[in-house]
Amino acid sequence: MKKNTVIFYGLILAFIIVAPFIFPDFRTQLAALWLMIIVAMTWDMTGGQMGYNSLGNIVFYGTGMYVAAVVTIALAYDVGAYTNAFGGGVYKFTDQQYFLGMLLGILGAGVFCSIIAVVIGFVTFGLRGPYFAIGTLGVAIAAGELVSNWEWVGGGQGIALPVYPGDLDTGKVLFYFLFAVTGVVLFIFLKWLYSTRFGAAINAIRDDEEKAEAMGIHTLRYKLTTWAMSAFFVGVVGGISAFQLIHFEPLETAYQTINLGIFMVVCVLLGGKGTLWGPIIGAILFHVFKEVTWNYFLGWQWVALGALIVVTVVYFQDGVMGYLAHRKPEWFGVRLDDKKAEVSQ
């Protein structure tokens, strides 16, 4: 690595570590920003790099939440009885039960969501283009509806997890770092993944799937693997969110199809599809816009958000990175004439 690169990443990492301590009032906000960054990066794995625009990735977030909750509860109590006694029962968790549940719940959420992605993917990856988007949207809506009718996990009322046993501020720092570590791991993982043959293969699927098939690339296998990896990380952050939010219910929080489910797409579009940094930039822009303007809309927030989606899609579809790539192609290693080609390598 070049010296500048080391300094660049070192500075970012240092900021990530000190941020919750220099902005103590914004710890929850920063955690929410990490959530946005992570889901945007995972959406870009299929949407940007592989060309499969899913509108249903939220299904992994919701499922991750439920898996984490159910695992934690099941380690100590009977889940059906626990959810039945919602609000009334006295269920105590020891510190050990809480943290063991957290560890197993979050990892279990990731693994379970990967499996779900492979199972759903066997069907949905037969669909191309808009059919895939509509099909996955359908899966997400159906999942939310089914879970909200499933009494064992609390039905429409949702499910409540134990509160973090320590003091409140330590809890906020813990959740910040859970998200941050997941985000950093995801970034390193993707940087590596996109540099392998695997990355090239999913790009080939995006650019011309028929040609990729004709060249004998195992398209379905790559598509399933990519979605499973993406789902793993979404499931993990879903699990973390479950512990952070303590109580969540199926339609508004877990399977929030038109909130987070569509935000992740907008983030990626804002930042630029199919790039490593695009989703991150987009998520930061979007999150800041959302948080700063939110209070000024006086009940019109959701209309404004719908309008933001429309405006982004219509006028700014290539995003920040796309704009830069258009203006400064040489930054992205695109060579347009023969001379430069001779100079390098």
Partner: peptide, 30 residues
């Protein structure tokens, strides 16, 4: 049918015989 957005070398590397690769070979660089 070629990958218009990629350069010549990338086009060639994407055409490596995947049928002769094991699944984990995909996670190597070229």
């Amino acid at each position: 049918r070629i990958y218009g957005a990629m350069n010549g070398v990338e086009n060639m590397l994407i055409s490596l015989p995947h049928r002769k690769m094991k699944f984990l070979d995909a996670f190597n660089r070229n």
